[in-house]
Design a protein around this nucleic acid. Structure first.
Lengths: 137, 137
DNA sequence: TCCATTATGCAACATTGTTGCAAATAATGT
DNA sequence: ACATTATTTGCAACAATGTTGCATAATGGA
């Protein structure tokens, strides 16, 4: 069974063309994808289907949301998420030159001490800078 | 001279009704405001004017962008920003109950060590949880 | 008060995201 | 292989968010 088929099966999702291709597309890219990029790359599917598939993947813990400083939400494959809980406490890095956003799995988000009375659910850490590839130009 | 007038003068901006009221509105709220909230509160002004004023304020370092996990961008007054550089390395806290996003000035973003080859510009740290007010219900 | 510059309002449009419903498809059991 | 059922998809329509061009109005300085 292919990798993409396996991921779908693991999460009790039906094997559909759109889902398989979306997972394949995520796997083929090391950076977070915005809806618009998926729409362009997978133009045989309807915009709405892509939105709904992203939503399904989010729910099941297949992808996680990546905040960007410029409007559109991006998504990236989860490494360790489950249907019950996302575990994405890693840093997201946005390169201001090539505009890509990637997950930096090697740095975990430092623990912070919230003020009295605040409780913690999760967090999202976006670092902006210039990535290795762009720095070497 | 009023506070709002002073802020505009400091940044060499003309004193206009919309700008003054926007700054006043920001000052009156301890949490980050989305465009839609400003539009509702300042309905005498055009949507476009509010967008452009936000853009101007961003440029001048009067407000900073606050990332939210749900679509729309929010903005909050800067404490220490200038036209030349934003200094917003504090934590933003989103309460999942009342949905407000506030700046937590008392916690600064911990320094993180990026992988080799990456350079740092700035960062944006969003913590999701439940705020003090909502926890006390 | 006049003038040059800048800001605003309006219209039009582009992008992003959502909802309802009918037709197509996937999984299941026979 | 086929029929049944539940789910997914495509389409249409819409809502929300964000952008651009241009004529008019307002601001600040001479």
């Amino acid at each position: 069974m292919s990798d993409t088929a396996h991921i779908l099966k693991k999460h009790h999702l039906r094997q559909t063309n759109c889902r398989q291709q979306m997972i394949a597309h995520f796997s083929a890219h090391s950076y977070a994808l915005a809806h618009s990029e998926l729409e362009q790359a997978l133009s045989e599917f309807d915009r709405v289907t892509i939105y709904r598939t992203l939503y399904t993947f989010l729910e099941k813990g297949i992808v996680h949301k990546v905040l960007d400083d410029a409007g559109a939400t991006r998504y990236a494959l989860c490494a360790h998420c489950t249907e019950h809980q996302h575990h994405d406490e890693h840093v997201h890095f946005k390169c201001m030159q090539c505009q890509t956003v990637q997950c930096i799995d090697t740095i975990s988000i430092p623990n912070i001490q919230l003020p009295q009375g605040y409780s913690y659910i999760d967090s999202n850490f976006l670092v902006r800078g210039v990535c290795r590839q762009c720095n070497q130009l």
